[in-house]
Design a protein around this nucleic acid. Structure first.
Ligand SMILES: [Mn+2]
Ligand SMILES: [Mn+2]
Ligand SMILES: [Mn+2]
Ligand SMILES: [Mn+2]
Lengths: 218, 218
DNA sequence: AATATTATTTAGATGAGTCTAAAAAAGCTT
DNA sequence: AAGCTTTTTTAGACTCATCTAAATAATATT
């Protein structure tokens, strides 16, 4: 059983490994955890002693198999709780993350097993992120940022890259939701802003927005 | 916002105040918290600085109004989560306490408000204990230990004093559940054991058992 | 009232997790 | 290759929550 801090570091390393395939740097981890590099070094040493990460001085960290399994389990719990909060308690999708950050650390195998069943084994959380199953397997869907599409192309919105309350509330305000068809009517070459069609209505969105919306491709 | 440890101490003091109306002793608190008296003294000083308890050296502690409100809120959360686990996730009543000990420390006003609504504002937890409402008010029912009743008397079982898994499993095994009518057929003066009628069936129970079952009186 | 026992507090240490400041290593420039 | 900059690690300190051992206060016994 690991501490709340240890679990949070494992999650952070897991997420950063995509951008740092050769090893997550101390500074990147410090940034992600909103802490100091020296604290990260301390924690990395602890995680290394517990065989959760592979660490060599000045080389960054990588999750071990064990560490990755642990991280995925915490992520599974986080996302299941997010589904619970939205589907059962009526939270909005921009209100769930903070609470899930706490709930993900509750230790009980039975709890998470029964919660999963109660929610009818959901495959995705309210932000479109995949939920690992009890064995740690999860779908990796073919997605691309809306910003990468060209004029005339279209696709279904299936997730958000930024899931901050601010961004999610912007989407709500403009009636952009997961599952919706988006057609690119115009794309401005100067600032990459787009005119899109959404439910028959036209909407102008900046590159900041289109760079944080995932579209299903295949 | 208080730490997990602080909240647990407040709960313990709250429960012990019934037995120690003039002030909860350091040793009693150490016993309840499974820790050492010196640790208790340290914590009491912290709680006192935060105005959660009134403390004078060698005099024991009492909760302040603020401290009592905080304790009651934690107890409210604990019991609501226990209802959730039993009613929604299918936990048995002897499996919920440990998990609720963790869940009671989750910080989110909205979460507990919506959970309460989701559970349809339950008045009692799975062990018959009253659940404080959002203002901290809860019913204090007229109850008496089964052991205090005499031959020929009867009443409805409404709660347990000991809610350890071992005791609860004993009750399950003997089909004793909350809400049931219990009639005392015989009472042995030597060891206080009883012969009771339960759903038409006769059952012999020891004083250890009857001293941990609450019966509704008025 | 003096003494013995018990309860409580103090003193000092430990471990987890964090911090700042300083040292050391790695990576870039020229 | 030497020097400069950035990154990372080390050293030392702090808080919270705990512990053991010792000191002190309160209570009980004779
Ligand atoms: Mn989240
Ligand atoms: Mn999410
Ligand atoms: Mn309980
Ligand atoms: Mn209970």
């Amino acid at each position: 059983m690991f501490s709340l801090s240890e679990e949070n570091y494992l999650k952070a390393i897991f997420h950063l490994e995509r951008s740092y395939p050769t090893g997550v740097s101390t500074n990147a981890l410090a940034e992600e955890m909103s802490t100091k590099a020296s604290s990260v070094t301390d924690m990395i040493k602890r995680l290394s002693e517990k065989k959760l990460v592979a660490y060599k001085k000045y080389q960054g960290v990588k999750l071990s198999k064990f560490g990755r399994e642990t991280a995925v389990e915490v992520i599974r719990k986080h996302r299941l709780w997010e589904v619970f909060l939205v589907d059962k308690l009526g939270f909005a999708w921009d209100e769930v993350h903070e609470v899930a950050e706490q709930l993900e650390h509750i230790k009980s195998d039975k709890l998470i097993k029964e919660l999963d069943r109660f929610l009818d084994f959901p495959k995705r959380d309210p932000h479109g992120d995949p939920i690992p199953d009890s064995k740690g397997n999860f779908v990796t869907s073919n997605k691309v940022l809306l910003a990468e599409l060209k004029k005339g192309e279209s696709g279904i919105c299936i997730g958000v890259k930024d899931s901050s309350p601010e961004f999610l509330q912007y989407l709500d305000k403009n009636n952009i939701a997961l599952g919706q068809l988006i057609v690119i009517l115009e794309k401005e070459s100067f600032d990459q802003s787009m005119l899109i069609n959404l439910n028959g209505k036209e909407l102008k969105i900046s590159n900041v927005i289109s760079s944080n919306l995932y579209i299903k491709t295949s």
